[in-house]
């Protein structure tokens, strides 16, 4: 019960945070994840404090779900020194390992090889944690994924491959970018535990992520899960929308957050007043994060040569 409300709270925060960020004229170049909140939150619910998560460029939702502080993240995204990396990494490149977010590496599929290295370190240290790597359907066509699947299977690395299939690689439809029937089938070739589930169904995401994480944690080697989600915004805040208005309207009806609210309300686990209170709380947290970011200074230009070597 409490976990369900916490998960809803986490999804509402991601939506409010991204909306608050996108409303800013100076938000820069951002990749938002509206429609994909259940994937981030469901996956994060299966990870513990020993684990590390790596992602591609669509990193805000997963980082918040993992527990990166909204204030520090907002400051990072807006280039302020109060950010998790002093504002110098930004959207596709930030990290906060203390929160279990090893980092974004916004070269599509390149991050997958890095994650396998972190997993190798875990294995060599007999570390209790596992590593999860979150990537999109776009990355499922890239060679780095296949090389890493092979080595991760050969070396039985504690690595959980998670494909957030939001159906689009910028403008290219998933059907046009990957010939496999299910993207998770790719993991099966290498003998992994695999599953494809509806990424808009939070309980299904959470349950699948937990089963897969437990499998990896038990020392069975890597697993590969695919969550089919939707992308309610364009690829990036500077990319033009390629879908028609009615298509987007139909997608909005599938919103994973509203779906979870309906489920909880139908089960009598959530009232209308509490729902509104949770929405207000999320907006408030996003605004607080924005106030923190605004109060934090930009770096001094002289910092440009710091931490190069």
């Amino acid at each position: 019960m409490n976990e369900a409300i916490d998960n809803l709270r986490a999804m509402l925060l991601i939506r409010a945070f991204e909306d608050c960020l996108a409303a800013r004229k100076d938000h820069g170049f951002q990749l938002l994840s509206s429609g994909e909140e259940a994937v981030s939150v469901g996956l994060a619910s299966a990870l513990n404090e020993h684990d590390q998560l790596l992602t591609g460029g669509r990193s805000i939702g997963p980082a918040l779900a993992r527990g990166v502080k909204p204030e520090r993240l907002m400051a990072e995204l807006l280039a302020r020194t109060g950010g998790v990396n002093r504002g110098r990494a930004g959207r596709g490149h930030f990290s906060d390992i203390d929160a279990g977010f090893f980092g974004a590496h916004a070269v599509v599929a390149g991050n997958i090889t890095i994650a396998a290295g972190v997993a190798l370190g875990r294995k060599l240290e007999n570390h209790p944690g596992i590593v999860a790597i979150l990537f999109g359907d776009g990355a499922s066509a890239a060679g780095a994924l296949y090389e890493t699947l092979n080595i991760a299977a050969l070396w039985k690395l504690p690595l959980l491959f998670v494909c957030n299939n939001n159906q689009l690689s910028v403008s290219t439809a998933r059907e046009a970018s990957n010939a496999a029937e299910n993207i998770s089938d790719i993991g099966g070739v290498f003998g992994m535990w695999t599953k494809s589930v509806d990424g808009l169904d939070l309980p299904a995401v959470s349950e699948t992520a937990r089963t897969a994480a437990d499998y990896v944690r038990a020392g069975n080697g890597p697993a590969f899960i695919e969550f089919s989600s939707i992308r309610l915004r364009s690829h990036s805040t500077t990319a033009r929308e390629t879908r028609k208005r009615d298509e987007l309207a139909a997608l909005r009806l599938k919103c994973p957050i509203e779906r979870e609210i309906r489920r909880l309300q139908d089960a009598g686990l959530l009232g209308q007043a509490q729902t509104e209170a949770l929405r207000d709380e999320a907006t408030q947290r996003a605004e607080t994060a924005m106030q923190f970011a605004d109060a934090s200074p930009y770096p001094d230009p002289s910092e440009v040569l710091e931490h190069v070597v």
Binding site: G110, T113, G117
Partner: peptide
């Protein structure tokens, strides 16, 4: 690509 990437990742993880 994976050999260099895994090296980079395991290095970032302390090796």
């Amino acid at each position: 690509p994976a050999s260099v990437g895994i090296a980079a990742g395991v290095a970032a993880a302390g090796f």
